[in-house]
Design a protein around this nucleic acid. Structure first.
Lengths: 223, 223
DNA sequence: GGGCTTGTTGTGCAAGTGTATAAATAGCCT
DNA sequence: AGGCTATTTATACACTTGCACAACAAGCCC
């Protein structure tokens, strides 16, 4: 047990590195989302968040006016990431509309969109929407954007099937399909282990195609 | 300015009435749900809750071991009320299975089940489910109970239509229909004013019947 | 390398938290 | 009516919270 020269003076100030503003803000937002997901809004204190981000609590005030703004930016980042991921499943140029719709449903009902952490965050924030107009608007924008995407694909699918729905029917289809995806998403996030892999997506595709009145495709027969 | 005999001595102790245990517990639970719906879990302090219940904070400890137990009982009460309301729409003995299913969907997509306050509470609590096994189990039980009800009605409907689905198909139908109702419920709670009265129910019924492959009924013709 | 900027730390503070407990009183029992 | 008990109030306490601010040092600029 060598009494080496003490490398850490008892009241030493903590060493730190200066990070760029972009990086720090992103780290703090990520730490905020982690903390909220793990401890809820009540347990996500500035000190908890700072600890997770590897800094001290005081620093947060250097990048955000207050806790509320930090939470708001975190929620905005979350919503942005969610819609971005969801829409990303639609960019398949070389596929038929029906295939694109199926791929969209499949993507939304598997990882990484089916995810308990993201669901926990979504629920925690959305629970405040009715009391917080800013949250409500953020959700509404994301929701309508999502539904418009759905409506566009639905229009393509029906056009390819030589149907010609009026605007009202199109809207109703989009609302229903959006509900199917949302509902199955929730079930998958909350109790993913109750479903076999791909089961939710299969249920979703069948329900969506039934809603649109598409005749079932022949099941990939005997190879 | 008559100096009447001061009816309220300056340091008077607050007057109170003794209520039965059942009544007080119920009042406290209701005040808890109100507070959580309005201020979220973070804003629902014991003092806030007590103020709303018309008592002082100390009393809570007389009926509940701690805050956590109070919240847990409040959530249990909420879930119980929700499932009770939902199932109540199914007791229509003199109707055809298809009518009962339609009534069930309709009931779940109108007030009082479509309700911003209840949704806020549901989301707030469910957001903690992934971190709190007790909450997770409470939800799971409620969900499975609900889904089993749906499955039973679906079986009746299909039987009346001379279909004979196997257990797997039945389960898939129930999951899909549950998702449709859940998804539309959320949309209605979050943005009810975006839909005309009865619109969500109409969308829901159509989607559910499409899922089950029921031929559309003739629309109540001209008149 | 030496100064300067500013990102970062540490400490302090008032307000609010859940919990513990003593004091008071409402209302039943006899 | 008068005592007893359990419900209710009130106060205290240790702790956490968000925020303010002064001290400090990391690393760029010259």
């Amino acid at each position: 047990m060598p009494d080496a020269a003490d490398p850490a003076p008892m009241n030493a100030r903590r060493k730190f590195r200066r990070e760029g503003e972009g990086r720090r803000r992103q780290d703090l937002i990520e730490a905020t989302l982690d903390s909220v997901a793990e401890y809820g809004l009540q347990g996500a204190s500035l000190r908890t968040i700072a600890l997770r981000a590897g800094v001290t609590a005081g620093l947060i005030r250097h990048y955000f006016p207050g806790k509320e703004e930090l939470l708001q930016e975190a929620y905005t980042a979350l919503v942005g990431r969610m819609t971005e991921q969801a829409k990303a499943a639609l960019v398949m140029d070389d596929a038929s509309p029906r295939q694109r719709l199926a791929a969209f449903v499949t993507a939304n009902l598997n990882a990484p969109i089916i995810d308990a952490r993201v669901f926990s965050l979504w629920a925690t924030f959305i629970g405040r929407a009715s009391a917080d107009p800013a949250l409500a608007r953020a959700h509404r924008d994301g929701y309508l954007g999502f539904r418009n995407e759905v409506e566009a694909v639905v229009a393509e699918v029906l056009a390819a099937e030589r149907h010609q729905p009026d605007a009202s029917a199109l809207r109703h289809h989009a609302i229903a399909i959006n509900a199917i995806i949302d509902g199955l998403w929730i079930e998958g996030c909350l109790a993913g282990e109750m479903f076999s892999p791909g089961e939710l997506a299969a249920i979703g595709i069948k329900a969506v195609e039934a809603e649109l009145g598409l005749v079932p495709l022949k099941h990939d027969a005997e190879k």
